[in-house]
Nucleic acid binder design. Structure first.
Lengths: 146, 146
DNA sequence: ATTCATGCAAACGGTTTGCACGCAT
DNA sequence: ATGCGTGCAAACCGTTTGCATGAAT
């Protein structure tokens, strides 16, 4: 099974060359249910048997970033950047402080609040980032067993 | 005018030694209307004529962090940590993408939304971080002149 | 006197970059 | 054939740490 051309058209549309690396990176991010570090992507590529270097991962991510195909976010408090497919749809995140998993949440009830802040501060708000910190379902369950 | 003892009691209460550096760092953060990088604090200390090293700034900040006197946040997308006085009160932030200034906003209308997410995802939410990105009043004004 | 804070320089870790080579177009 | 993508190693930069010195208690 060769799915190395899955993102050919997408890349072409952005005037980017269609390489196996870029295809695989996009595929990994697309399949992931959470934002990934460059390292996680690198390790997954290795796991899939690809020979790739860290710098290529970073360069591919930056290229995709510039074309707005992926989004970079710094959700966590360590200094590792996180990347996820730019799904256009606006998302919030739930971060479990115990297992460090990040869950994406669609939908956003903050439009009214944004408007009120714009009025109050003279700001023109173009976007926002909301992260909720807490304990996930699974960690709550395991905690009880300790 | 010597205000190097302004935070003496606060430090004592936390079993921390009362040093000029710590006092000055707390004063700088307290006077600032926005979260500061370690570098900004370092430069301000220099400006005030204090002889101090970067590592002392970082160590002081970590000490104050452990006592919950300051809060560390990673609002921006570069990899510089930001620090601000822990005013207890929950805050959101407005980040001007043009001048990179960060404005703190008190008040929070997200309690209901939190509850709905908790119910929907089985999460127990303990806190959250909300950053709004946009153009501030001042930059809008200067933009028109360009 | 004891314990903790400080300065310096070196280490650390995530990310970026220079350069020569290789592949997509 | 051309220009962009890649691998490697070294550089980079914010932050942390080891160690000897200095200051607060």
């Amino acid at each position: 099974l060769d799915n190395s051309n899955q993102y050919k058209d997408l890349l072409k549309k952005e005037n980017l060359r269609n390489t196996k690396h870029r295809n695989s990176i996009l595929e990994i991010m697309n399949k992931s249910d959470q934002p990934l570090t460059a390292e996680a992507i690198f390790l997954e590529l290795k796991k899939q048997g690809l020979s790739i270097s860290f710098s290529t991962v970073y360069r591919a991510l930056e290229t995709l970033l510039n074309k707005a195909l992926v989004v970079k976010s710094s959700v966590t408090d360590d200094n590792k950047a996180l990347y996820e497919i730019n799904c256009q749809e606006h998302r919030h995140h739930l971060l479990c402080v115990k297992c460090r998993k990040i869950f994406s949440v669609n939908g956003c009830p903050l439009k009214e609040y944004e408007k009120s802040l714009e009025k109050k501060y003279g700001f023109t708000i173009s976007s926002h980032k909301l992260v909720m910190y807490g304990i996930c379902d699974h960690c709550k369950a395991t905690k009880e067993k300790e």
